[in-house]
Every structure is written in C-alpha cells, then in structure tokens.
C-alpha cells in the first residue's frame, strides 16, 4: 500500500500524516498537487492546513484543482480516501462527501482535545474500534461546523454514514460536548463508498506515542490492510 498525501500550497499537516502512517508501517509519500496522482497510489490522504489561505471558503480552491478529478475517480474505483480537517473541507467542497464545514459557532479558531464516539465499527476507518467506543483526538479549526440540508441529513443518518460524533467522556453526544455547533454533533462522515471518509479532528496528531495519545491510530490503520 502506497499512500499519497496530497500537498497544496498552504497544506501543513502533510508531513504529520506521512510520519504517522510511517509509524504504523504504511508506505506514504507527499505528492505536490500539480504533479498529479502517482500511478502506484493505493490510498489517498487529503491533509489538514490552510490551502489557498482559505480564500473564498476553506477548501473551495483546492477542491477545484485538477488533481481532485483524479482523486474522485480513484475514490469511485474503491481507493481509500481520507480527508482530515482542511482535507475534510476540501472533500465536501469537491463532492466526495455531502454537506459542508463552515464557521464555528464561536466564530473562533479552536484548538483543543475532544471526545469522539465511534458510530459504526464495520468500516475500514473504524475496524480497530468497537461501536460506541470513545476516543480522544485533537481539533484545530475555525471552520468545522458541519452543515447539511435537513433532507440530506435524514438520508445520511438513514444510510448510517455518520462515522464519528462529538461526545463527552461518557459517550453522550450532548450540546455541551459539541465544540463547534455541528449539526447532530457530526465530526466525520462517509462518502458514497465506505472507503471514502472525511473528519475534522486529527487522527494523525493522536498516533505517535511521543506527542500524547494514540487513539487516532485506528483510523489510519485503514491504510495498513
């Protein structure tokens, strides 16, 4: 498995993602977006950061770069694709996943640890956990509030495509545990296929034991299979 971590101007979690994947024994390399997707790509990470300075809307510019056409094709063919933070915003903007991530309810940039509840454990991203497990991972975003049309939220829930919800330490998805005002406490969702996922929290920042917490490892283990 060779994972391509796509780097746009302004991406800043690309090295973290490569480091975290390497720690898990996964071959990963950074790919500059203008160079296109390498032919040996078996997995794709769209990393966090501030691509294009968040111009217009976070992720709007990167979502319209030519490489994203290649990513959508690969995703449709079953290549695992994970969008983290800015990568999640790009994923929604490019139509890999439904909904949008927009300005936090606080109107502030928030950098803190949160708890997530695993909503289903039968996906590559959550196979290392049990349904209902609570994990602790960091968030660092100003535009992480999940918004979606009401009828589309119904579809998302009915199709069981919510992967992670913000919750308290006991696993209750309360409003108090919702850091950014996300609809239905949604922190991460699946795309049309279960091999495509986006999430605002950072599993790659909760993978290396030396930097505190390894709860995010399970998500990245999807690429280790």
């Amino acid at each position: 498995m060779t994972v391509s971590v796509i780097q746009f101007g302004g991406s800043n979690c690309d090295r973290d993602a490569v480091r975290a994947l390497s720690h898990l024994g996964v071959d990963a390399e950074r790919v500059w977006h203008a160079d296109g997707l390498p032919t040996d790509t078996d997995g794709i990470v769209i990393p966090g950061g501030f691509s294009y300075g968040d111009y217009l809307r976070a992720g709007a510019m990167a979502a319209r770069q030519p490489i994203m056409g290649e990513v959508r094709e690969a995703a449709a063919d079953g290549t695992p694709v994970l969008g983290v933070c800015n990568g999640a915003q790009i994923g929604c903007e490019t139509g890999l996943t439904d909904g949008a991530f927009t300005t936090n309810r606080s109107a502030r940039f928030q950098c803190e640890h949160v708890h997530l509840r695993i909503e289903r454990a039968d996906t590559p991203w959550t196979a290392a956990y049990d349904e209902g497990d609570v994990i602790e991972v960091p968030i660092a975003h100003g535009e992480g509030r999940f918004e979606i049309r009401e009828d589309r939220l119904d579809t998302l829930e009915a199709e069981d495509r919510v992967l992670f919800r913000y919750c308290d330490a006991d696993g209750d998805a309360t409003q108090g545990a919702n850091p950014n005002g996300s609809t239905a406490n949604v922190a991460g969702i699946l795309g049309a296929r279960e091999t495509v996922a986006v999430m605002m929290p950072h599993p790659e920042r909760a993978t290396l034991p030396d930097i505190g917490g390894t709860d995010g490892q399970g998500v990245l283990r999807a690429f280790a299979e």
Partner: peptide, 9 residues
C-alpha cells in the same frame, strides 16, 4: 453554481 456559492449553505 460551480464556485462562488456552496449550495449546501
């Protein structure tokens, strides 16, 4: 439709 607005919001 294609860039300036996001139809979700």
């Amino acid at each position: 439709d294609r860039l300036l607005a996001n139809p979700t919001i």
